[in-house]
Write a protein that binds this DNA or RNA. Structure first.
Lengths: 223, 223
DNA sequence: GCGCCTCAAAACCTCCGACGTATCAGGTCA
DNA sequence: TGACCTGATACGTCGGAGGTTTTGAGGCGC
């Protein structure tokens, strides 16, 4: 194994074992390199790799720190990876989202606050009846993000966030090519919101399923 | 933005745009560095970072290649990230798995082959009635992996694989501290397998839920 | 005393050049 | 024909030299 890979493993070990805790500052590059027995150049490769996936946070002029290691932060790297997937696997991502999103929406029905419900309503009202495709997609993303956030599970929240990238792209295509999709999306959003207000978890789950299945169906017929 | 980060973005762009396709070989470090307008050292940091998350595959003495970019491969990096999570977020991971695994098991009920069913049965038989905790946990992992693989969705499969890490650890603790957990796990495995043989998706889903919920419940009462 | 400015130390950022090591292709020899 | 050797190629590692950014201490004026 290359010395850089060893360094990655050792730093990982220091964090997992608790020797380094979230927010802790690492020794400066030259010292850490000496401690781990490699050159500063090679160590930098290890640090850079860990910083790409949000394990470390390097600040020029200051130092290198362990991030908070929140699920939200770490799974943020997921979206980076998801970007690389080709369009032919979008359906698989969508299928997973079809499983998670209804479940998250049902969970939210039991926990969402009146305040958040009002905020979601305001957001939908602001969009109006016939928004541009860009506004609709952006609003859709925010709408679902808000609901999933109310599920109370940050891992679930981040995971769906990461998986939404490809779905969003698909939604754009759909909006551009299928006129009645806009109206349908708005109607489904209203229905989901109404179910949440009623605290009706099963209705919320069903509407969320319908919402995603409609995109999936369109996509399947197109590809 | 630092030159290394620019290089990461540019390489990502070359892949996403299709200029570099899976399996393609990159120009040698010195040439690529010159093309992108940075030093070989800085470029190496970018390449190392992309190689950690399985976007690039570097082979000493040969060259640097774009990986297959399969969902399976890219989400493999997920387990690396998940390793960093502290024990206090295990419940959130488990909750997500509780959503995905029953769905995957239900999907598998409709698709799994007789051959795979026989293989799963043989695996359970081989374990016997009172295996060691280590064997049980390893068998459990393989059992679920086999089922999820039969769901036919590689994204779902990889995702669950990555999420199983923390769950597995929890299962070990449970096996070590709760004697009847072993018998319960074996019983539930048999029940899931029977439901799969019957092609009964709903029964398979329910048993999978019970299976995970039992771990979740124990964990919740312990923490 | 309080706030602002200046400056020097600390730490990361980038680059260069050199040498070590692994792989592969082609030639050599039995 | 097949095994072995050898050179070219490309990645791996290192040490050192400046450059840039951040931070905080110290000094200055109000």
């Amino acid at each position: 194994m290359a010395v850089t890979d060893e360094a990655i493993e050792k730093i990982k070990g220091m964090i997992v074992s608790g020797a380094l805790r979230p927010g802790d500052r690492l020794p400066k590059e030259s010292e850490l390199a000496a401690d781990l027995g490699l050159s500063r150049n090679s160590l930098r490769e290890a640090v850079r790799a860990l910083s790409l996936i949000r394990i470390l946070d390097v600040r020029q002029g200051d130092g290198t720190y362990v991030t908070s290691l929140d699920p939200q932060l770490l799974l943020e790297a997921l979206s980076f990876v998801v970007d690389f997937h080709r369009d032919d696997t979008v359906l698989e991502f969508l299928a997973v989202r079809r499983i998670l999103e209804p479940a998250a929406t049902a969970m939210a029905a039991l926990r969402i606050s009146e305040q958040q419900l009002d905020a979601l309503t305001a957001r939908l009202d602001k969009l109006g009846e016939s928004p541009s495709v860009e506004d609709l997609v952006a609003g859709d993303l925010e709408f679902h993000r808000g609901i999933v956030h109310s599920s109370g599970n940050s891992v679930l929240c981040s995971l769906l966030d990461g998986l939404s990238g490809p779905t969003t792209r698909a939604r754009v295509w759909r909006g551009l090519t299928q006129e009645d999709a806009v109206a349908g999306t708005l109607r489904e959003h209203r229905a989901i919101l109404a179910a949440l207000r009623d605290r009706d978890a099963e209705a919320a789950r069903s509407w969320a399923t319908v919402h995603i299945a409609s995109v999936e169906q369109w996509l399947r017929s197109t590809l």
